[in-house]
Design a binder for these strands. Structure first.
Lengths: 185, 185
DNA sequence: GGACCTATTTATAATTG
DNA sequence: TCAATTATAAATAGGTC
C-alpha cells in the first residue's frame, strides 16, 4: 500500500558505506556470504580454511572448516577419499559460524591455537597412519616435512616475542608480570 | 571450429570434486573469489579480515585487509571517516593475496602475530589519538576496552600453553629445548 | 597453467512486513 | 532489529585458445 520504489540490486562502488545502518546490514549479509563461499571452497577442494573478521561494531567472528582438529583426524583417518556425494553437509555451514561472545583477544587466541595445533600435530599424525592412506593426500606431506630445526627455532622465537609483547602490554597497564607469575595491580 | 558443447554454468553439488584437474581449477577460481569477497567486505564495512587457506597441493595462501599494522595506523590516524568514494582501491585486492613461499608453520605465525599485534596495540593507539576522531569508529572501543586483567591473564596462559606445546613437539623430534635455550639435536 | 568466453546459477541491495 | 521478496549485478562451470 505504499509507494513501490525500485527494488532489486544496484551496482555497488567499492567504498566504505557511510550510512551506519546500511553498513551493518551489508556486514551481516556479506560476512555470511564470505563464510559460505569459504565453506564451499573447503568442501569442494578439500582445503583447510580459517577466517577471522573484526566487525565494525561488536565481537569478532571466525570461521574454520569444519573444525581444525576434527578435520585433521578426518583427513588422516580416511582410508580413501570421501565419496563424491557425501550428503547433508550443505545446510550445515551455518553451524560453523562461530559467533563468539567472548572478548576480542580471547577469540583471536582460540583461532590462533587451533591453527598452531594444526601445524604441530599434522606431521606426526600423518606419519602414524600414513601406511593406510591412499595417495590423495600426499600434498600435505611436502610442506609439513619441511618443518625442520630452522622452522622450530623461528617458531620458538616468535612465541617468545609474542610473550614478551603481552608481558610489556600488561605491565604498562598495571597488571604486572614478575618472576613468572601474574598479579593484578 | 570444434564441436560447440554446452558452455555456461551448471548447478553444482556441495561435495568434493573428484577429478583432480577440475578440483585444482575450482580451487584457484574460488580462492580468488573468496579473497575478493573478503576484500569487498573489509572495504565496504570497515572490518578487519584475515584468511588462511591450506590448499590441496602446495603452499598456503593468506589474505589480510590490507595489512594489519597499516590498517591500525590508518584507522587511528584518520581524523575523519574516509570519503565515500576513495579511489583506486578497486583493482588492488589482487596485490593483497599474499602467496607465501615459506613453510606452512612460518606463514601461520606471521598471521598469528599480525592478529595479536592488532589486539594488543589497538587499545593504546586508539586512546592516544582518540580526541581527534569522529564518532564513526566508536565501535572499536567497546570490545577493546573490555580487555582487563582477566583477559590478560588468559592470554598469558594461552601463550604459555602454546610455548609448551612447541617445546614438547621439538623435544620429541630431537631439536631440544633446555634451560630456556634451543639447540639442534 | 593461464586468459578469455558465455550460459547460468548465486549473491545481494533495496525495500517491504 | 530480523525474515522475506525481487530485480539485478556478480560469480563461476565448462569450454576454447
Amino acid at each position: 500500500m505504499s509507494t513501490r520504489l525500485i527494488k532489486g540490486r544496484k551496482s555497488v562502488r567499492l567504498a566504505k558505506i557511510e550510512n551506519q545502518n546500511n553498513r551493518q546490514v551489508t556486514f551481516s549479509k556479506r560476512r555470511n556470504g564470505v563464510f559460505k563461499k569459504a565453506n564451499e571452497l573447503a568442501v569442494m577442494t578439500g582445503a583447510e580454511v580459517g577466517i577471522i573478521v573484526f566487525p565494525p561494531g561488536s565481537k569478532p567472528y571466525s570461521f574454520g572448516h569444519p573444525n581444525v582438529n576434527e578435520t585433521i583426524d578426518k583427513y588422516v583417518g580416511e582410508e580413501r577419499p570421501p565419496s563424491p556425494s557425501s550428503p547433508g553437509i550443505d545446510g550445515k555451514y551455518v553451524q560453523m559460524f562461530q559467533k563468539t561472545n567472548s572478548i576480542t583477544l580471547n577469540t583471536q587466541l582460540n583461532t590462533l591455537q587451533d591453527q598452531l595445533d594444526f601445524a604441530l600435530n599434522l606431521k606426526s599424525k600423518l606419519k602414524e597412519k600414513n601406511k593406510n592412506l591412499e595417495s590423495q593426500q600426499d600434498w600435505f606431506k611436502g610442506p609439513i616435512e619441511r618443518m625442520n630445526y630452522t622452522e622450530a627455532s623461528m617458531l620458538k622465537e616468535r612465541l617468545e616475542h609474542l610473550h614478551l609483547k603481552v608481558k610489556n602490554y600488561d605491565t604498562e597497564h598495571g597488571y604486572g608480570y614478575e618472576n613468572g607469575k601474574w598479579k593484578a595491580e
